[in-house]
Design a protein around this nucleic acid. Structure first.
Length: 951
RNA sequence: GCAGGGGUACCCGAGUUGGUCAAAGGGGCCGGACUUAAGCUCCGGUGCAUAGUGCUUCGUGGGUUCAAAUCCCACCCCCUGCACCA
């Protein structure tokens, strides 16, 4: 029978589905394992990135089932969002239809790959059955004071026609479409995520996220400790509040800088000669594009605002500037300028000839003067303080002293500042969860009563390309409503929720996906979510978006008593990039579309080389999963993906390697067929095969548990096969042994290549599906080490024999026909055993080794003394290059030396095989001294390293 | 600039609690067997030297050690994220 993936794979997929093999229920007798992939946005088809993500997850889900865990492995779709809305406009349909068409397409792709999802838990966030709970929980957030509507300057994407949260702006561009965002002032809905800033930050220490994700989240939250200091403005009631992390530099403040957008600016300079320059600066800043800003900001620019402020501690009068480098949205939008100890302030002071004072001593620096070209930003004792009691204090002590003085005189306080902002939730788009709020002209903003939920998206909306804005806003039967408070005419809120809201709790919904009375049942979620999702796999791109929102949301639901757990995800694995070759110009350091292969660089005309680059539509170097599946089958694609690289590592697509993996599967297939043709015929090699099997099972289990899938697959699909091949080569043909081996091997194949594994399982007459099989514990067989060591010994003899033979050939006139093997003399073996014994007792060979050997019985033979010393040294101490053998012998080698196996016997028993492998007609073997010393090999003969001579 | 991760043989990629490491595994390439013939399968080889010892190699240069891919220092390069955050 030949391997036919196209026939075999769908057959087993159907069998699993019919048997409901992957449907998980709470079972408190079993350890649970919640395996989850970041659910996809359902765009037309599954791409290779998806395939990689789910192949990793499915392998782990299947592995954990084999290990006897109760595995929850669900799949759903993050189906709200703009692409469907845009597609609907283009095609003239409704996003709802577009979405469901896409979902069924991607779902069938996933099923064709054989992923073991519990499909009963399927959900789509754009279905009202899901998003009604979004609304219910929004009301809860509101009741808990975590919802706020306020005017705010927001990031607006013109192309997407909506606002973006801070996290969704990358380098001043929209994370989705890449267009530059602009600033607008609008009333928006916010979730007060900042209330959880500290917990979100501190808990990172206890989560097993990859280090880079933690770092990104830490940076994003950006907590800094410092002081808020009030600088009163001279001749004015205004006070400038500035945040600083360096209150210890307070005596070095020589100016104060406001961000040009700060409302105080206008107040200070309005109607004076200083107003015009300030306006120019402000307008310039607000107009600047990202590119210009980076270039322009290399040069600090500022304008004097015509007023001065007072340093509240020293009483000194200092000028107030507006500066382009001060960020309006961070801290108070005002900075105290300490040019002596802040490089940025230094540059600014130089440019505008402001005073530069040294107030911190650089202890490393012998020169007590102030550097003329850079600020000293380090810590050191305070100097030149204009008030008693500060000089000499340094670091935290200095900061504390300044803060306590500030607090005493009412001019400031110690405080903590965060970079994290509240979550801007509202979007001016149709295809999202409607925010359940009502605007009443007399009652203001009123939440939709729970019993009136859900607020459903209307289906009778016609989408056309010409229309702009949110169709909800012009849909009068949606908008017009009654105020739940006063019953008067009112309007519904037409903003919808950011889709990250949907994905902030879907993992909890999966635990109880069909609950129609609440988002989820507490007990159910507590069972599956204990210690979080056990393995969460997805892309790094969500490091500060989804992964932060979901953590926040879980803490909120915990605090309202909906669940126990506070951190949603246990182990997080961010899969690496999938790369494929693309044309590359080394000169321009640029990659081009694959259509440029073979031609010249479009910009410099040099010839193009190839470089691997992230698979992308723009480079055209993508690979279609469907094509690969129909050519090789899902198992081959899965094997390639898992064997190509460990989950976190980037991997290069290679047609060659894919084909090689296909051949590997065919080889396995043929081997299993061959094994099944055996009849009863036991040989000594049988023990070896089963010993190797157990050894591999252990190594495999460890690798897989650790999500080292590449290593796991290497054992299950490569080493097991080569062991099998060796067994056959060594004459193994026993049916019973083969069946035992297959029974151990086939389950190991299941995580990566479940279809062939299931097929083989049937072939060895197993009545139940492999998909629901649990691996028994691995037997401890004490003879395994012996079996393995004997075989390793034979392999080593052959391997060193081969090397030597090629050398011997150069010296031999005639054809080599015979190998003479002289095994170690008995006394060398005795020395080795003695040394091993002493070594296990932690004997000090360096100090006492010499004396010890002199007292041994064999030492009485004077003719051997010199050689005994030499041998003893190489066993116990070693030489410069090579450490003593007692340190370097592996377990099997120690085992073999200590056993009563005679090397001579082992070689004799296997002499035919060794002769064949070495390509000689005959082998003669005897211990040194029992025959002629051929080629002078007696002296190099050593335990496990016999002297081999070719004739 | 700051932070995180890297640089291993022709290529990809293990290995970093120092010795068992000339360095797993795969691809490629070379040779052999099988075959009418292979692009199929199997076996072997793949730094140099060599009847086994030796020499040179894990980004570069130093250092620690009896012994370094592995530990320490400096430097170079690549990737990822943040970016005048006070």
């Amino acid at each position: 029978m030949t391997y036919d993936a196209q026939e075999l794979e769908p057959r087993w997929q159907e069998a699993w589905s019919e048997a409901r093999a992957f449907e998980a229920e709470i079972d408190r007798d079993k350890e649970k394992f919640y395996c989850l992939e970041m659910f996809p946005y359902p765009s037309g088809h599954m791409h290779m990135g998806h395939v990689r993500n789910y192949s990793i997850g499915d392998a782990m889900a299947r592995f954990q089932r084999l290990m006897g865990k109760n595995v929850l492995y669900p799949m759903g779709y993050d189906s709200f969002g703009m692409p469907a809305e845009n597609a609907a406009k283009k095609e003239g349909g409704h996003p709802h239809e577009v979405t469901h068409k896409n979902i069924s397409s991607i779902r069938s792709d996933q099923q064709r790959m054989g992923y073991s999802y519990d499909w009963r838990r399927f959900l789509a966030t754009s279905d009202v059955e899901y998003y009604k709970w979004n609304q219910e929980m929004f009301l809860m957030l509101n009741e808990n004071g975590l919802v706020e509507r306020r005017m705010a300057p927001v990031n607006w994407c013109i192309d997407c026609d909506t606002v973006l949260a801070n996290e969704q702006v990358k380098s001043n561009r929209c994370w989705r479409c890449g267009l530059e965002v602009v600033q607008r002032d609008m009333a928006q809905w916010f979730l007060k995520m900042t209330q959880y800033s500290d917990e979100l930050l501190d808990e990172l220490d206890n989560i097993s996220f990859p280090e880079n994700v933690k770092t990104m989240q830490r940076n994003w939250i950006g907590r800094s400790h410092g002081a808020h200091i009030n600088f009163p403005v001279v001749d004015s009631d205004s006070i400038i509040g500035a945040f600083t992390t360096r209150p210890d530099t307070i005596f070095g403040v020589t100016f104060v800088t406001l961000s040009p957008e700060n409302p105080l600016c206008e107040l200070l300079c309005s109607g004076t000669e200083w107003e015009q320059p300030w306006r120019e600066l402000r307008d310039e800043c607000s107009r600047m594009s990202e590119f210009e800003r980076i270039n322009m900001l290399k040069e600090k620019k500022g304008v004097y605002l015509g007023k001065n402020a007072i340093n509240p501690i020293s009483g000194e009068e200092i000028p107030i500037y507006a500066g382009n480098f001060v960020v309006a949205s961070y801290g108070t939008g005002a900075v105290m300028g300490v040019p002596g100890h802040d490089q940025r302030d230094f540059d600014f002071a130089k440019k505008y000839s402001l005073e530069i004072n040294r107030v911190i001593l650089n202890e490393q620096d012998q020169d007590s003067g102030l550097s003329t070209n850079e600020a000293f930003e380090g810590y050191g004792p305070m100097v030149n303080s204009s008030i008693e009691g500060f000089d000499g204090l340094s670091g935290q002590e200095a900061k504390d002293a300044v803060i306590s003085t500030l607090e005493k005189i009412g001019a400031g306080h110690g405080t903590v500042q965060y970079r994290l902002k509240d979550w801007l939730l509202s979007r001016q788009r149709f295809w999202g969860t409607p925010i359940p709020m009502i605007h009443c002209s007399s009652c203001g903003i009123v939440p939709v009563p729970r019993e009136d939920l859900p607020v459903e998206l209307p289906l009778d909306v016609v989408f056309t390309e010409e229309q702009s804005g949110n169709p909800l806003a012009t849909h009068s039967s949606f908008v017009k409503t009654k105020c739940p408070n006063c019953g008067g005419e009112a309007n519904r809120e037409t903003d919808t929720m950011d889709t990250f809201y949907d994905s902030s709790w879907y993992f909890m919904r999966f635990c109880d996906a069909n609950n129609d009375s609440s988002p989820f049942n507490k007990e159910t979620v507590d069972y599956w979510m204990e210690n979080g999702v056990d393995l969460y796999i997805g892309g790094i791109e969500h490091a500060v978006m989804h992964l932060l929102y979901a953590r926040f949301f879980t803490k909120f639901t915990r605090d309202t008593g909906m669940n126990e757990v506070g951190e949603p995800f246990g182990r997080l694995v961010c899969q690496g990039m999938l790369n494929a070759p693309a044309p590359f110009c080394a000169e321009c350091n640029a990659e081009y579309h694959v259509e440029n292969f073979g031609s010249q660089c479009p910009s410099c005309s040099n010839s193009l080389t190839s470089r691997s680059a992230k698979m992308s539509k723009s480079l055209g170097n993508t690979v279609s999963p469907e094509k690969m599946i129909s050519k090789y089958g899902a198992d081959t694609v899965r094997l390639f993906i898992l064997f190509g690289a460990n989950p976190e590592a980037g991997m290069d697509w290679s047609d060659n390697a894919l084909e090689a993996n296909n051949r590997q599967i065919i080889s396995i297939f043929d081997s299993v067929e061959f094994a099944l043709s055996f009849s009863e015929s036991p040989t000594p090699i049988d023990d070896w095969l089963l010993a190797k099997m157990r050894e591999n099972q252990r190594a495999w289990g460890n690798a897989m548990s650790d999500v080292s899938l590449r290593e796991g697959v290497m054992i299950s699909h490569f080493e097991m096969l080569s062991d099998w091949n060796w067994y056959v080569r060594r004459g193994g043909r026993d049916r019973k042994t083969a069946l035992t081996f297959l029974e151990g091997w086939i389950p190991m194949m299941a995580p990566a290549t479940p279809h062939i594994a299931e097929e083989f399982w049937l072939k060895i007459d197993k009545k139940n599906l492999l998909a629901i099989y649990e691996n028994p514990p691995i037997e401890n067989n004490f003879d395994d080490l012996t079996a393995i060591s004997i075989e390793n010994y034979i392999k080593e003899i052959i391997s060193s024999g081969r090397n030597l033979k090629t050398l011997a050939q150069r010296h031999s006139e005639n054809e080599i026909t015979k190998a003479v093997i002289q095994t170690s003399p008995e006394w060398k073996k005795e020395l080795a055993i003695e040394a091993l014994k002493l070594h296990s007792e932690e004997f000090d060979f360096k100090k006492k080794g010499q004396d010890h050997v002199k007292n041994l019985e064999i030492f009485t033979d004077p003719t051997l003394r010199g050689e005994i010393f030499q041998t003893w040294t190489s066993i116990t101490i070693g030489s410069k290059k090579r450490r003593g053998r007692i340190h370097s012998w592996s377990d099997w080698e120690r085992e073999l030396i200590s056993s009563d196996q005679e090397e001579k016997d082992l070689i004799e028993e296997n002499s035919q095989f060794i002769a064949e492998s070495l390509g000689v007609e005959s082998i003669v073997v005897y211990p040194v001294g029992d025959g002629k010393d051929i080629g002078g090999k007696a002296k190099i003969s050593f335990p496990l390293e016999p002297g081999i001579a070719f004739m």
